[in-house]
């Protein structure tokens, strides 16, 4: 198998491999996904399969449709056609909160937190639903030891415990990015989508963020959009290249690195 084969057969191969290896459906499986905004076709037939426990990166030039793809998978927008399966079950067209409850959680490219609430409350909001908090208005929240323990644990992991009482809006940019990841993982979702988690970070901050991502994605399935190639190649088990709404290649980092097609379409213009 070479990296230069077209996207569709590659994805099919991935599916087969997963089926043989685990005899369970892939964590995430996308078939023939299309999204039009009016006459503009943004996603033009994406096939993608992410095996359970895999760290999968989606790369591509600006405007390729990476964020739209994430918005489709996470339920923020509804696909025009095609199918999205989470652990073998279709979540196509389902509202975002239902997809989240089925174990898929995402972060945002632009920091998307609860700015007026404390750091502690930000993380706790993400812990509540999976721990049975639901919409309860007859039960206290502060005395829930389980929720508090998990919140404490997440804040420790993202290294924001010392900042827990200040409003999230006054955190530094890098801290807000860490909080963004914390909110995303706090609920314990087993499929995590990260949209450019290191965008705008310094080199040192990026290194810490990658370390954090590596740690929290342990034992989970990760789909990540990232522009920083050192992050992508250092982190991902597999990489898919999205260009103009289509996946032109999907494979291991080595395969992608050596793919002439990818070089031509993407890496070539990015090579510094």
């Amino acid at each position: 198998m070479t990296a230069t084969t077209s996207a569709a057969p590659m994805s099919a191969a991935t599916t087969d491999r997963t089926a043989v290896a685990n005899a369970v459906p892939p964590a995430l499986e996308i078939r023939g996904l299309k999204k039009n905004f009016g006459p503009a076709e943004i996603i033009r037939g994406v096939d993608l399969s992410v095996a359970r426990g895999e760290r999968h990166a989606v790369i591509g030039p600006n405007g390729a449709g990476k964020s739209t793809l994430f918005n489709l998978i996470s339920g923020l927008i509804v696909p025009t056609s095609g199918d999205i399966r989470l652990h073998g079950e279709s979540v196509n067209g389902k509202p975002a909160y239902q997809i989240n409850r089925r174990g898929l959680s995402r972060s945002f490219q632009v920091t998307n937190i609860f700015a007026n609430m404390s750091v502690w409350e930000n993380v706790r909001c993400a812990v509540l639903w999976p721990r049975g908090g639901r919409y309860a208005f007859w039960r206290g929240v502060d005395n829930n030891a389980d929720v508090a323990a998990r919140t404490h644990q997440v804040l420790t992991e993202i290294n924001l415990l010392s900042r827990k009482d200040i409003p999230a809006g006054v955190l530094t940019y890098a801290e807000q990015r860490a909080l963004e990841i914390g909110i995303t993982m706090a609920g314990g979702a087993d499929v995590i989508l990260l949209d450019e988690p290191t965008a705008g970070m310094s080199k040192a901050e990026t290194e810490r963020a990658v370390e954090l991502i590596r740690r929290i994605s342990e034992g989970r399935t990760l789909l990540i959009v990232e522009h920083d190639m050192s992050v992508v190649f250092g982190l991902a088990d597999r990489i898919s290249v999205l260009v103009y709404g289509e996946i032109i290649a999907s494979g291991t980092p080595t395969e992608i690195r050596n793919s002439a097609k990818v070089k031509e379409a993407y890496l070539g213009e990015e090579a510094h």
Binding site: A96, R106, F108, M117, E121, C125, W138, R139, V141, T184
Partner: peptide, 30 residues
Amino acid sequence: ALTRTPFGRMCNAVRDNAERTQFVGYNPRV
């Protein structure tokens, strides 16, 4: 007391960022 319940906390979350509440499992409309 209502403000100190899961529902009360999520009210604040919806106020701050309704979109994000959907991605922590909550339907802001509810």
